[in-house]
Design a protein around this nucleic acid. Structure first.
Length: 291
DNA sequence: TTGTGTTTTATTGCCTCC
DNA sequence: GGAGGCAATAAAACACAA
């Protein structure tokens, strides 16, 4: 704080008044002894009750007003340092989150590439008009084994293209198309299934539920329920004639996973960043910060 | 020695609480 | 309304490079 010479002089002479030679009206710095005593008191309690202020002033040969001002300025300095500390923590956390985001983005990108490759592979197998609704970046391929299962289960005879415009007569909104692979292995149609996937063209539309219901071996119904921009739900049914009905539950080609980017321990860290319930005294705070 | 930047002490004005 | 706190700021004291 002071130069060594000046510090030594203060220590030897005891106070600024003596150093200055006289008590003037000019602004005078407090002696090292006074500052140390004030610091010590500040560590104990950073607010000053009137009795303590008068007592301290008497002990240090200062005006009570001077002690009050010193505490006030000291609190201001502490606050500035605290803000700097908080900023540092915040910046570090932000960098960590940024790094994590970048990694997730890369993971997502590689998964999307994987999906693309699988789609291409499927098309090469002789299904050029098959569309799979995996456009939205939130879509994540499930397990690798499920993807291979998909290939084996795929049957061109049952590939069903559903044009959702036909479900949307009164709004004239384009919803998009989707194609579904059907499981034809067992021919049963009594299984319930549900899936959630984003619309082929527009993220505004989202399936809430898909059910297949069995009735007979030659005529089955499949009902869809999906939402329009999350505001309303649209239900529709299609009739499928054929011996086997698609079972959407076993399509297993895509699924959405809810991404909780900040749902782990890092979010906890983050939530603490702006914690302002910190106690306002120094025994609450590590005293080494003042060195 | 001097100019400039930083730190410390002190003031002012506004706000809140009792 | 007075006391005390805080933010903003002034001004003196100090550090330091050139």
């Amino acid at each position: 704080m002071y130069t060594r010479d000046f510090q030594t002089m203060l220590d030897e002479e005891g106070c600024v008044e003596e150093y200055s030679g006289h008590v003037s009206d000019k602004k005078r710095r407090l002696s090292l002894h006074q500052v140390k005593a004030l610091e010590k008191n500040f560590e104990v309690e950073n607010k000053l009750e009137p009795e303590r202020k008068v007592k301290l002033a008497g002990e240090l040969g200062l005006q009570p007003r001077q002690v009050a001002v010193w505490f006030q300025n000291r609190r201001a300095r502490w606050k500035t340092k605290q803000l700097e500390r908080d900023y540092g923590l915040l910046k570090a956390d932000r960098d960590a989150l940024k790094h994590k985001y970048e990694k997730l983005r890369q993971d997502n990108e590689s998964l999307m590439n994987e999906i693309k490759e699988l789609k291409m592979k499927l098309n090469e197998d002789g299904k050029p008009d098959t569309k799979v609704s995996v456009k939205d970046e939130n879509l994540v391929v499930s397990e690798t084994e499920e993807k291979s299962k998909l290939e084996t289960e795929y049957d061109s005879e049952a590939a069903m293209e559903v044009n959702f415009e036909s479900f949307n007569g009164d709004e004239n909104e384009e919803i998009g198309c989707a194609s579904f692979f059907c499981d034809l292995k067992d021919g049963s149609s009594d299984s319930d299934s549900s899936a959630i996937l984003n619309d082929y063209n527009s993220p505004r539309h989202q399936f809430l539920d898909i059910h297949s219901g069995g009735s007979s071996s030659s005529m089955n119904t499949m009902s869809f329920q999906f939402s329009d921009s999350g505001n309303k739900e649209i239900s529709a049914s299609i009739l499928g004639d054929g011996q086997k009905m698609c079972q959407l539950a076993q399509m297993q080609f895509v699924k959405i996973e809810e991404h909780d980017f900040f749902g782990d321990e890092e979010s906890d860290n983050c939530s603490n960043l702006f914690c302002d319930d910190q106690a306002p005294t120094l025994h609450w705070y590590s005293s080494h910060d003042w060195n």
